[in-house]
Design a protein around this nucleic acid. Structure first.
Length: 437
RNA sequence: GGAGGGGUCGCAUAGUUGGUCUAGUGCGGUGGACUUGAAAUCCACUGUGCCCUUACGGGCACCGCGAGUUCGAAUCUCGCCCCCUCCGCCA
């Protein structure tokens, strides 16, 4: 959420941001409620001050005098209860409205109504050429018997799959490869240098986070809505995460971090669960859009002034990973109308999928500014002693399913086998999938 | 799941017959005195949020969270969350 003081002082900026994001929120109403809120607050505090004062006094009184004061305070109490009721009612409306205010897009975010406004920032790699018609991953997967969606449908339903054999080796190969890069100060320093970014080379701490979390904490991550997208266990008031981001982000909630400890970087490996409620009938073939998939996710907490650089670094890491696999991709700046509500700036990496003859999103990078941290109450104490909210970044390192798709479609060969990207061979233990060996 | 114990201002603790607790003490931290310097010692300060105020300063709230009893609750009652010990179950 945004700071109410910030909204008051930058009303036009916030209005403009909401309009660009296509979010309908009545900010004038919010400020009106805030004025009322303050007024009742003052009234209440004055009454409480009086109560405190009289509570002290009362002990010096005795007998009839004491009875009289008690009677007066009972009266005061009635007024307080009434004011508290009004305050709570108002606060509820106030909070609801405040939470619906989206984050402000960065100045360099393209303005647009929906995904049609997204802008390709750069492209990398050459699309492979084939002297045969490249197949889609669902065909390759079935033929090599490494992806089984049919049996999964019988057991679990649509949008589930069994990954088998070499696909599994590939999954753990990808993870091992990425972790090697992300936990190495030298590798990270190299990536930063190449991207010309003056960021710290602090390694990522690997985490295996919980995949179930309290719904109220998910709310504080601004990720509970739309609730239709979440698997929700009402009996336990727990939701399944849609990304490791959801449990990595709150790792330091209600904490004050030391300035010298930043940036704190984590790489979390977890399964992600999505109901895909709004995507009925879309991408039903293969494993592009699954209810369940595994993912390596980056998360960092940084000083506010380093937030944008941190995101640039995250994108540089993503590009480094894709370049290592020699997969052709494009970096896309997501426009105001397509980005998430809590985002300040968002980039996607879309990777070339020859079997589908198009680029598909494989990674995303979200810079949240202090939007999530404010509600999570994660703060930094600067050297001068000031407290500010940390800035948070999250990004995909590898979404395993989609990376597998990209690999099998780009590395497929005429004989039906799939080459293993050179960088992965040591981690997978073989150079070809589906071959005689 | 059952039984018991516990959650106090960075850490550790005091406080459970309701009102001098707007929370004491120790450690840590900051500033100062002493010292050539340091240690030791002594003195002062030491959280977060909201609100009023140009400022100085002031008010309110917070003793796991939320309700309740009361003129008044860290202290009493109820619900919830979490931690620890033992038992049961279990990868």
């Amino acid at each position: 959420m945004l700071d109410i003081h910030f909204i008051r002082e930058n009303l036009e900026v916030v209005k403009d941001a909401a309009a660009k994001k296509g979010v309908d929120v009545d900010l004038d109403e919010l400020l009106k409620l805030d004025d009322e809120r303050k007024k009742i607050r003052q009234e209440l505090d004055a009454k409480r001050a009086e109560q405190n004062r009289r509570s002290q006094e009362i002990q010096t009184f005795k007998g009839f005098e004491r009875e009289k004061v008690i009677e007066a305070m009972q009266h005061l109490k009635i007024g307080m209860t009434e004011a508290e009721g009004r305050y709570q009612e108002l606060l509820q409306r106030w909070t609801k409205l405040l939470l619906s205010v989206p984050n402000i897009p960065s100045p360099d975010t393209p303005v647009g109504p929906d995904e049609s406004g997204n802008v390709v920032v750069r492209k990398w790699g050459e699309r492979p050429t084939f002297d045969f018609k490249p197949k889609a991953h669902w065909d390759i997967g079935r033929e090599l018997d490494i992806i089984d969606t049919e049996r999964a449908a019988a057991v679990s339903g649509a949008r589930f799959s069994y990954l088998k054999g070499d696909a599994v080796l590939m999954q753990f190969g990808l993870i091992a490869f990425a972790l090697k890069v992300l936990t190495s100060r030298e590798e990270l320093a190299g990536i930063a240098q190449k991207a010309n970014l003056p960021v710290a080379a602090t390694p990522f701490i690997p985490i295996i986070p919980p995949v179930l979390m309290r719904s109220d904490v998910m709310g504080r991550m601004a990720r509970l809505q739309p609730i239709e997208e979440r698997y929700f266990f009402e009996k336990d008031d727990l939701v399944l995460v849609g990304s490791a981001e959801h449990t990595l982000g709150p790792l330091h909630m209600n904490e004050i971090l030391g300035d010298e400890s930043l940036p704190i970087r984590y790489v979390g490996y977890s399964t992600a669960f999505r109901r895909e409620a709004g995507a009925a009938g879309k991408d039903t073939r293969g494993i592009l859009r699954q209810h369940q998939f595994d993912k390596l996710e980056l998360e960092s907490f940084s000083r506010p002034e380093n937030g944008y650089q941190e995101q640039d670094f995250f994108v540089a890491i993503q590009e480094h990973l894709m370049q290592s696999l020699k997969l052709p991709y494009q970096v896309v700046a997501i426009c105001t109308g397509d980005m998430g509500k809590p985002d300040q700036r968002q980039f996607d990496i879309e990777t070339w999928m020859p079997g589908q003859d198009t680029y598909r999103e494989t990674q995303t990078s979200d810079y949240m500014g202090g939007y999530q941290a404010r509600r999570l109450n994660t703060r930094v104490r600067s050297k001068s002693g000031d407290l500010t909210h940390v800035h948070m970044n999250d990004a995909t390192a590898f979404a395993i399913g989609r990376t597998l798709i990209a690999i099998v479609e780009n590395y497929q060969q005429a004989d039906g086998t799939v080459k293993v990207p050179e960088a992965l061979v040591p981690y997978v233990g073989k150079a070809v999938i589906g071959g005689a060996g």
